[in-house]
Simulated assay, not measured.
Amino acid sequence: MMSGPAADQITFDDFMKVDVRVGQVLKAEPFPEARKPAYRLTIDFGPDIGVKRSSAQITKHYALDELHGRKVAAVVNFPPRQIGPMMSEVLTLGFPDADGEVVLVCVDREVPVGGRLF
């Protein structure tokens, strides 16, 4: 389980450097080349950010067919990262369950894609 004490305090300006946006999953595909079980996600973040790809280790709690159309949160301003044969452009966010498996961060009301966390 990934818990523990709070991280060091940061300023509000530090927080604002992390650009977390809501996006809508357009496509979810198997990603057998990943080291750990994962899916390859294509996510729409609206006209300002565009469509981005992400590798997400969410296979324990989510089936491919239930991800299409789901709203997810992601960090959109990290540099792209090579994950096996794909370039992951955003970090899809989640919390660990009691077994350390990822549960996606999601919104509980309708919001437009591209909205920024504040």
Rank of each mutant, 00 (worst) to 15 (best):
I43V: 15
V51A: 05
V102W: 00
I49E: 09
P85Y: 04
S3T: 13
F78V: 11
V107K: 08
S88K: 02
L93A: 10
S55R: 03
F12E: 04
G23Y: 02
I43A: 01
F12L: 13
G23W: 01
P30D: 15
D99L: 11
G50A: 06
R81S: 07
V111M: 13
L67H: 04
E33G: 04
G114A: 09
C106H: 15
L67M: 11
G100I: 05
R21K: 13
V75Q: 06
F78Y: 12
L64I: 15
Q9G: 11
L64H: 06
G23R: 02
K71W: 02
P37T: 06
V72K: 07
A98Y: 08
R70L: 15
D48V: 05
D65V: 06
D48K: 14
M1D: 12
S88L: 01
K52G: 05
D44Y: 05
I43K: 01
P5K: 15
P80R: 00
G46C: 02
M87A: 10
R109Q: 13
V102S: 13
Y62I: 10
E101L: 03
G94D: 08
D97S: 11
M1V: 14
L93W: 07
V111I: 15
P37W: 07
V20L: 08
M86W: 12
Q9R: 12
P47R: 04
L91T: 07
V113A: 04
G114E: 09
I43Q: 00
M16A: 12
Q9T: 10
V22W: 06
V113C: 06
R53Y: 02
P96W: 09
F95K: 09
Q24L: 04
F118E: 13
K27L: 14
A38Y: 04
E33L: 08
G69W: 02
P79F: 03
A38W: 05
A73F: 12
D65K: 14
V105K: 02
Y62E: 10
H68Y: 05
T59M: 08
P37F: 04
Q9P: 05
A38N: 05
Q82C: 03
R21A: 06
G23C: 08
S55K: 01
F118H: 13
A38H: 00
H68W: 03
E101G: 01
E110H: 13
K71V: 08
K17R: 14
E66H: 07
I49Q: 09
G100M: 06
M2Q: 14
R35I: 11
P79L: 02
V18K: 00
V75L: 12
R21S: 03
M2H: 15
Y39E: 03
I49F: 02
Y62A: 10
P30Y: 11
G114V: 10
E110P: 01
V90H: 01
V90T: 05
R40V: 00
L41Y: 02
Q9M: 09
P79G: 00
D13Q: 07
S54M: 05
K27R: 15
V51N: 04
K17A: 08
I58L: 14
M16S: 10
E66P: 03
R35W: 01
K71T: 11
A73H: 07
P30I: 07
R70N: 08
S55F: 00
L104A: 12
D44H: 07
